[in-house]
Design a protein around this nucleic acid. Sequence first.
RNA 1: GCCGGAAUGGCGGAACCGGUAGACGCAGCGGACUCAAAAUCCGCCGGUGGCGACACCAUGAGAGUUCGAGUCUCUCUUCCGGCACCA
Length: 851
Amino acid sequence: MQPSYDPQAVEREAQQFWEERRSFHVEEDSARPKFYCLSMFPYPSGKLHMGHVRNYTIGDVLTRYYRMRGYNVLQPMGWDAFGLPAENAAIANRVPPAKWTRDNIAYMKAQLRSLGFALDWERELATCSPDYYRWNQWLFTRLYRKGLAYKKTGVVNWDPVDQTVLANEQVIEGRGWRTGAPVEKREIPMYFLRITAYAEELLAALDGLPGWPEQVKLMQKNWIGRSEGVRVGFPYELDGEKRTLWVFTTRADTLMGTTFCAVAAEHPIAAFAARRDPAIKAFVDECKRGAVMEAELAQVEKQGMPTGIFAIHPLSGERLPVWVANYVLMGYGEGAVMAVPAHDERDYEFALKYGLPVKPVIRHPLGERVDPPWRPEYAEYGACINSGPYDGLAYQEAVERIAEDLEKRSLGSKQVQWRLRDWGISRQRYWGCPVPIVHCPACGDVPVPDAELPVKLPEHLVPDGSGNPLARMPEFTQTKCPACGAQARRETDTMDTFVDSSWYFARFCCPDQDRAMVDARARYWMPVDQYIGGIEHAILHLLYSRFFQRVMRDEGLLEVSEPFTNLLTQGMVLAESYYRDANGRREWINPADVVVEKDGKGKVLSAKTRDGSEVIYDGIGTMSKSKNNGVDPQALIDRYGADTARFYIIFASPPTNTLEWSDESVEGSYRFLRRVWAYCLKFSGAAAAGEDAGREVRFEIHSVLKQANYDLQKHQFNTVASAAMKILNALEGLPAARGPLAEEGLSILLRLLSPITPHLAHHLWRALGFGEDVMRAPWPEPDAAALERDEVELVVQVNGKLRGSIRVPREADRGAIEGLALANPNVQRFVAGQNVKKVVVVPGRLVNLVV
RNA sequence: GCCGGAAUGGCGGAACCGGUAGACGCAGCGGACUCAAAAUCCGCCGGUGGCGACACCAUGAGAGUUCGAGUCUCUCUUCCGGCACCA
C-alpha cells in the first residue's frame, strides 16, 4: 500500500478496472430480480453543477447498494438536449445550437465519468438526435389521428419589437428580456395534447403509488383539481339575440346570493362590450397587456368595469349586471363566474370596491349578517337563508334541489370540473423536435406519414432572437402534401421539450431499436423502480410522464400504467452569497473568494475579499449565476477527488433536505477518507493477533451496521456515512492493529462505504486481500449473536423528568425494575414522602414514576 | 394570490411507534508532537446557577392532548419549491 491516500491514482485505477470489465453494462436476465434506478437526465448546459452531482450520487449509492444485494440493476444516462439555453447561447456567440449542445455533452460526459458513477454508457441517448425524436413525431401522428392531439388557439407572450414569442423566463417584470418592450398577450394556433382525457385516471391512480412522497401526490392531486359543482346558465340578450352566460360553481347553495356576474377579458361578452364602448375596450386591452404567468395575474389588484349587459338570474329572474374583471381567468371553467360577495372573499372585495350589493344567503358561524371586514367564517357552509324555497336546507341538499330546478329549466346541471388544462406543446422556436404536420391548402393539416419520418431539423441554423429561423428557410417549409401531392407548407413550430423527457426512461431500455419506439426489453425493465430528481419537477414533468406512460400503454407499447414505482425528490443545493457596493450596484463575490472571520464561539464577525475589502453577507440561497455563488464541482474533484465530493454530498444532509454548501465540511470528509486509508495501512502492516478484546466493540459495530441497513431502506444516506465514521472510531479504539475483530469490522466498513466512495473501497478491498471486487461481495448483515446483551440500561424518570438510570438484567420483571428504580438515590430525593400513583415501564427504555 | 414543504447548539445534522434532545461531523477553545508551521493525536464544547453532586431553562412563537411532546392537534411567523413557454 502507498503510505498516503492519493485519490487521483486510486480513482484512475478503479475506473479503468470497471471499464475493462464493462462492469456496469446490463442485459435482461430473468434469473435475478431487476432494479431500474434512474436519475433525471441533465440538460447539457455547459458543465455539471452541484445539483447534478448530488442527484447522480444519490442514484449511484442506490444502484451500487442494490447491485450488492443481488439485483440486476440498470442505471442509464442521457441528455435532455433540446431547449432554450442553446438558442440563447447561439444569439450570444453565433454558434449553431447543435454544435454548442454537442460540445457541452462531450464535456459533461467526461465529468460524469470522472465521478465514477455505475452508469451503462452503452445506452446513452440525446433527445436532439433524429433517432430519438422521430418517435416523438411518430407518437404525435398516432395521437393526432385519435384526436388526443388537436389544434386550437393558445395565449403566448408577444414581444412587439422583436416580433417574437417569449418564454415566461424571457419576460422580466412585464417586459421583453432583450428589447425591454412591454410584453403583450397574443392568441395563436397551437397543438395541444388532450391530457384532460386522462385526468380521472391520473388522479385516481395516485392512491396506488405508495412509493411516492405524500407531498408530491398531494401537489399533483391539487393540480389536477377535480371539483364537483353545478354549471349554471344566466340568460341574456345581445342585439336582440337570446344567449346564455354559463358559469361553473362549487357553491350552488349560494346561487340565490348572486348579485352580479363577472367575465374574463377574453370572454365573448367582453369582446362585444369593447366593440361598442371605447372605455371598455381600453380596459380589456389593459387586461390583455402583460405576461401570461398565473403567479403575476393572481397578484394584480382586482379591477373591473360594467359591460352594460345584464343577465337574468335563472331562478329568481333578477336582472344582474355583467362585469369584466381581471381576476376571472379564461383558462379555467367557463371564463365567467357568478359573484356571491356575501360568501366569497374575492367577490366581496370586488363588490366593496365598486359598491355592488352584498346579499347574505347562508347562516354562518358568526350569524346571518355579513359586515366588513371580511371574515373567513362568511365562506363556511351553513343553512340557506333569504333563499325562498331553499331556506333551511344544508349544503348538500341545497345543491341537489337547486341543480334539479335548474335542470328543469335547461339552465344547468351537476358537473365535474377539472383544474387541469390540456397541454399546449407548440413552441415557436428552432431548437426542438419539429411538429410533423404539413399544411395543405386543400386537405388542411396532414400528419407526416411514417415512411417520411423523421422530419429532420436542419442543424446549421443560428437563431438571432427574432422569430423562428426555420420559417425563413424555404428548403424546410416548402413541401408536397402527403395526401394530395399539391404544394404545401411544412409546420415550423417545434415541440415543448417536456415531450422529449416524458418517455426517455422507456427508450433507455432499448435505445438502439430503429423499427419501433420501444420493444420487449422495455417490458422487462419498466417501470422504473427508483426515480430520483429535484422537487421542482413534482408536478409538470412527473405528471406529463405519467400521462405519456398511459398513452403508450394504450398504443400497446408498454404494459404498466405508472412509469415510476418509487420517487425520491432531492433537495436543492444552496450556498452563501456575498456582495459589495460598486457605485450603487451590487457586485456579487463568489464565496470561494471570501475570507470569513469568526469570534471565539464561531459566530461570523466579518467577511472580506482576499484583497481585504469588506463584503456584505446576503444569506443562503440556491446557487445561481446572478448571485455568483456557484461552487464548481470540477474544482472540488480536482482538489479532493470524486470520493470526497461524493462522501461530502451524502454526509452533509439527508437527500430530501436542502444541502447548504460548506468548504470546511468538505475538508472534514477528506480527513475521514484519509483516516480510513491510514487505518488500513496500519492494519496491512501489522502482525495478526490471535484475539482482540471487545465484546463491547463488536456489539457497537453490529448495532451501528443494523441501524445503517435500516437507514438505507429509508434512503437516509447521511446517517449511513455517519455509521461508517462510528465503525472506524470503534476500530481505532481496539488495542491491537490487527485481529479477527479488526478484520471483520474493516470488511463491514469497506462494504458499507463502497456505494458512497466506490473507488477507495475498491482499492482497499483488494489491497487488504478481502477479494478481487468489492462490488461482487455480499452486502453485510449484522450478526444476531453480537447484538445480544445480558443487561440493559433503563432511564428513570419522576413525573417525566430524568432523575437517574439503572442497569437491569434483560429478563427482569416489572416488580424488580420498579424496586431498582426506587432504590436509586437521586430518584429517592424526588419521590421521598410522596405517593407513587403510577409506574410506566417501557421495556428496554425507561421507567417513569408518577407521584 | 393559490398549492406544497421546512424551521433542533456558532454551523450541517441525529433522535426508529410519543419515551435519556444534541449521535456523527464542521467550526471554536485547550494540550501533545515540532526549531517552527502543516499534517496527525488527546481533551473540552447548548444556556444559566453551583466548588461539586446536581438543579433550572431550551427543538421558530403561542396554546392544547398525554404519566411523558422535537415528534400528535390548533393558531401564528419566517424561509424555500411550484404555478402550465427555464429545465
